[in-house]
Design a protein around this nucleic acid. Sequence first.
DNA 1: TCGCATTGTGAGGTACTCTCATCATGTGGC
DNA 2: GCCACATGATGAGAGTACCTCACAATGCGA
Lengths: 169, 169
Amino acid sequence: MNTDARQQALDLLLECTVLLEQDMREDLAQRGLSQSRTHLLWALAGAGPSPQRVLAQALGISARSVTALVDALEATGFVSRQAHPRDRRAVLVTLTARGEAVVADLRTGYERLAEQLFGDLPAPRLELFTTTLAELGARLRTLVPPAGGSGRAEDGDSSPGTPGGVRLA
Amino acid sequence: MNTDARQQALDLLLECTVLLEQDMREDLAQRGLSQSRTHLLWALAGAGPSPQRVLAQALGISARSVTALVDALEATGFVSRQAHPRDRRAVLVTLTARGEAVVADLRTGYERLAEQLFGDLPAPRLELFTTTLAELGARLRTLVPPAGGSGRAEDGDSSPGTPGGVRLA
DNA sequence: TCGCATTGTGAGGTACTCTCATCATGTGGC
DNA sequence: GCCACATGATGAGAGTACCTCACAATGCGA
C-alpha cells in the first residue's frame, strides 16, 4: 500500500535524524563541546565578532541563554568577551585561537562525514536525493510557519554550505 | 564539484532533521507532552505494561531518568504505576485511558505527516528515496557503533512502523 | 534633558540527563 | 534454610539548556 510506503519513508528519515544527531553529539563531546555551544561557535565563525543580542537572534534562543552559553564557552577558552567600540552596553563575543581551531576541525569533520555518507552514491541518485530533500524541507517549512528569526539570520553565508547553520538540539 | 554536492545533501538532511524535530516538538507541546515523555508513552504502547528497567533499556536512558519521566507522566495522568505480580521490587508502568488516547492521536498525526510530506511524491521517487535513506541509516549505524541497547530493544514492532520507535531529543 | 528602547545579567523555574548511594527484594550456592 | 550477590526503584547531587521577569547601565530620539 502507498500509505505504508510513506510511513516507512518517514520512519527511515526519523531514524537517520536520530543517528545523525547521535553521531554529532558524540563527536562534539570528545572536543568538550555540546551542540548548543557548537552552534554558537559556528554562528560566530560565520558572522565574526558579534554582540550577544545578535547571536541570540541567529540561534533562535533568548538573550539570557546566550549569556549562559558564552559564560561556558569563555570559561573553557573557546571565546572571549571584548568591549564593543561604539556601544558600551554591548559585548563583542569573539573566537579565541582555540575557538577558531576547533571550528576548523569541525568543518573538516563535517566534510568527511558528507564524504562517508554520500561518497559512493552515484551522482544521479545523489542529485535526486537532494532534490527530494529540498522539497521535503519546503513542505516542512510550511508546517512550521512562525519561524521567527530562525531562518539563517546573519550567518553571512560566507563559506558555502555552512554546516552548523542548523539547529540540532 | 562532487564534494560540494555531498555537502549540500548533508546540509539539506540536517535541515530536514531540524524542521522535523521542531514540528514534532510543537505538536507535542500542544498535548502537554515532551519528546522524552512521548517516547516513553510510545514504547509503552508497543510493549504493554513494563517495569521501568525495561523501559530504560528500550529508551536508551538510565533507570533513574525513567523514574523521573514516569513521575511526570503519572502526575499528568498519562500512565500509572502498578504492582508487578511476580517481582515485588518492580513496578509495572501502564498506560491510562488518557495515555492510550493520546498515543492513538499521535499515531494518526504521524500518519498524516507522512501523507503531507510524501503524499504527492511519485512512487518510484519515493521508493528510491527510501532506499537511499536505508543505506544512509546503515552507514550511520557503522559510525555510531557502540549502540548499546539503543537499537530497537523490545519495541515489540507489534504495530507496523512504530513512529516513535526513534529518539528525537 | 527626559523618557523610552536596548543590552546584558541576576534570580528563579522547568526539563532531561547522568552518577553514586541506598533499600528492598529476588536468587543461586552451599 | 541462609547468606552473598544481583537487580529494581529511588534519594541526593550535579550538569546542560532552555525560559520569564526584573533591573542596572547605556543609547537615542523628541
